[in-house]
Design a protein around this nucleic acid. Sequence first.
DNA 1: GAAGCACTACTTTTT
DNA 2: GTAGTGCTTC
Length: 760
Amino acid sequence: MTDLLIQLNEPQREAVVNTSGPTMIIAGAGSGKTRALTYRIAYLLQQGADPFSILALTFTNKAAREMKERVMQLIGDSNGRSVWMGTFHSVFARILRAEGHHLGYPQNFTIYDSDDSKRLIKSILSELNLDPKAYNVSFVLHRISNAKSNLFSPIDYINSPEIQTADAAANKPLTGEIFRAYNARLKRSDAMDFDDLLYNTNLLFRDFPEVLHKYQHRFRYILVDEYQDTNHAQYFIIKRMAALHENITVVGDDAQSIYAFRGANIQNILNFKVDYPDHNLYRLEQNYRSTKTIVNAANGIIENNKDQIKKTVWTENEEGQLIGLLRATSDSEEGTLVANSIFGHKMSKQLPNKSFAILYRTNSQSRSIEEALRRQSIPYKIYGGLSFYSRKEVKDLLSYFRLVINPNDEEALLRVINYPVRGIGKTTIEKLQVVSNESNSSIMEIISNQDHRLKDINRGTLNKLGDFATMLKSFSVQMESKSAFDLAQHITNSIGIIAALKEEDSVESVSRIENIEELLNAIMEFSEREPVASELGEDGVPARSLAHFMQEVALLTDADKKDDDENADYVSLMTIHASKGLEFPYVFIVGLEENLFPSIQSLGSRAELEEERRLFYVALTRAQEKVTISYAESRYRWGSLTMSEPSRFIEEIDSKYLDMPRRVVPHKKAVMSQLPFSNSIQKGVENKFSDNANSSQEPFESSDIDSFQAGMVVEHQKFGKGKIIQMEGAGANRKATVFFNGIGQKQLLLKFAKLKIIGD
DNA sequence: GAAGCACTACTTTTT
DNA sequence: GTAGTGCTTC
């Protein structure tokens, strides 16, 4: 036990050992926030607290997993395992699986992701004959999500004069009706969206006191990480659950609140002292991560915000290097400057790639950076972006699994009823939806019962529908007896998805097949990792079953995927949002331009601008040794060239921490653009050259169309080196299928593609 | 009912 | 620039 405390500084130790009563830990960036929380849990366990009485809530699965691992390291495996540690969504989903029957939900309810939600809204719009342009799907979903996060039901929504006025002003007066229909359809599908996991948990605790008491008694200690990111629903549920023991500990940093756009309420952390007047307050202000330069520059930035809890973050670390500033004429040059700078640092200091991270405001910015890194042969890895689990083929197969587990899952059914193609077309599906709406029963029920209202569907089609239902039923039957992997493989083979993709025989279909294989591998791993099949999980779902796997997958994001190779050495690319909680020796923050960062959509209000500033604060404080920021004077956005000005955030950095632009790249052409007063016409001209100026001195010259042959090693201006897998066509239509390293297969029409032979 | 082609929105961030 | 949607044609 003394061992445990010896590794902590004074305020951290205080925050760990005072385990009773409401506690707020305000922790600056890099001050050991997670450490304090982890040690507090470990300390509780050492003091003899029952692991089953501890609930720790985090914002991401990754944070929960890491915390669990660290607790288990500190106090040994057995006790740590039983602590409930997870995201709000996963913990509440678990409670709802066990208790949802009170609200009329089966244990096997489906969790819709935002993709499912959007599809559902789209189909409701067309049923209500509303113009999908007037009622933008994202807007509607955002409104609904906000309402649920604030615990508004559709009725509350429709009855709220403020909301109705706002919707009328936005020319979308029927949003409430869409909300009502949307919720009804979710219910009919035995499905909940992300926000329902919170909304329904609150409903459960509000309307079923005996259920609330059960969890109130059980969770003697409740700990919440990243409290500044909680929304109203989360806040309210925690408060209710903690009401009996009031042993609630929240950890957070108001300066790192970056999720207000999706309902996080910074007031929750500011109001903690009002909710619990007798609370203990601990401040962790010593930063162990970054240099003095970084800490002070970041402090200076955040001072521009009005809404904040005053605190003084300081560090004993050394002064360190100044913040670098790279100025580029175009987004592609920005990529080059960053890649060259990384290359330079690597060489002069003998650093591995994993010392570097490149952070950006939006995912779309990664492209120009990637191209530059590829040209410099610097390995990199992108975090976030299109998730593995949201790829079409993966979702298609997962939809079959979902349908096996929950036949009422309408979004899953609509996805796969005619994929792979089985002759059930749009007209038939529309007829089914009409009957489904009339009878308020799911499409699967209607098909299975050969409902008499289907009489105007012809016999051939009816048979096809029957076959589809029978096939799915046969899968469901096997759920009890087969392991997740065996069943998944059986389904994959039976539906013929691989055969359909092979038939297609395109470049994409090859990688789709690979993705399906990867999904099956993941299920195999899961089957091996999980305990014996006969054991029942706490929520009554058979372990190792497909249902169990699907429950885990529903709340996973790519950020939660384990690294393929722990020792792999690559530069990390991610959005600033995704970087929260991480640290890197060298950090590049790119695209510091007005309208991009801060985002154009944040310029409307002070609150939103302050959130962007906190985002910049988060980005800066990821760095241990050195920060380099960059901006481009022009950038391709929406496919066309736009001019941009340096971000106001650059000016907010105290100049004494800033290294003024200087020569960074050895190329003559690039140097000119570093000169502060070079005029824009010159820059425009240069820009044209800078694209191919990096990999070779000569202009890129394509080889003769007829000389290409399968097996040759070639170089593409954009994609780099690759190998020709296949050639087809002749003359102007001659096409090559090329596999590029790190990119994958591409089909190139040689007439257009700039392709050079570099070896046989 | 299916395949091919043209159009258009997309770029904020995520459980 | 691209991916996804919707329209048209067979």
